[in-house]
Design a protein around this nucleic acid. Structure first.
Length: 113
DNA sequence: GCCCTGACGGGAT
DNA sequence: TATCCCGCCAGGG
């Protein structure tokens, strides 16, 4: 399906599709690209995403606990939380509240490769 | 070419 | 129910 042979590019495509006010998990994105076990790679790709040309809402990607595990990758540890709250996502103690409500399943999750 | 690390996840203890 | 450990995939030293 994806003509992109780059693992990172696939991650960016999925993350870019995340609507504002919604969040997803690394595992969900990994599964969306056909690698449900590459959750680590997703987060890693996010770190590289800052160098990637284009806007990648990495702050909308959290771990399966809804915890802002990647906040340390931002210029300021609170930047990620501020961005999420700015989009309508309530974050408390670096944790996404109503995570299940704001959770968004990437397109392709249903097809599962 | 080998070893370690890394924004995770899920199963086992 | 909480904590620990192993597994996944790729890149860097």
């Amino acid at each position: 399906m994806s003509e992109n042979g780059d693992f990172f590019s696939r991650v960016y495509e999925v993350v870019k599709q995340i609507p504002a006010g919604r969040v997803t998990t690394y595992g969900a994105v990994a599964a969306a690209i056909g690698s449900p076990g590459a959750s680590r790679m997703v987060g890693w790709a996010m770190n590289k995403a800052f160098s990637h040309t284009g806007y990648v809402p990495a702050h909308r990607v959290v771990n399966r606990n809804g915890l802002l595990t990647g906040k340390h990758a931002f210029p300021n540890a609170h930047t990620m939380q501020e961005l999420l709250e700015s989009e309508g996502v309530r974050v408390k103690n670096d944790k996404v509240m109503d995570f299940q409500k704001v959770f968004w399943a990437p397109d392709g999750i249903d097809c599962f490769k």
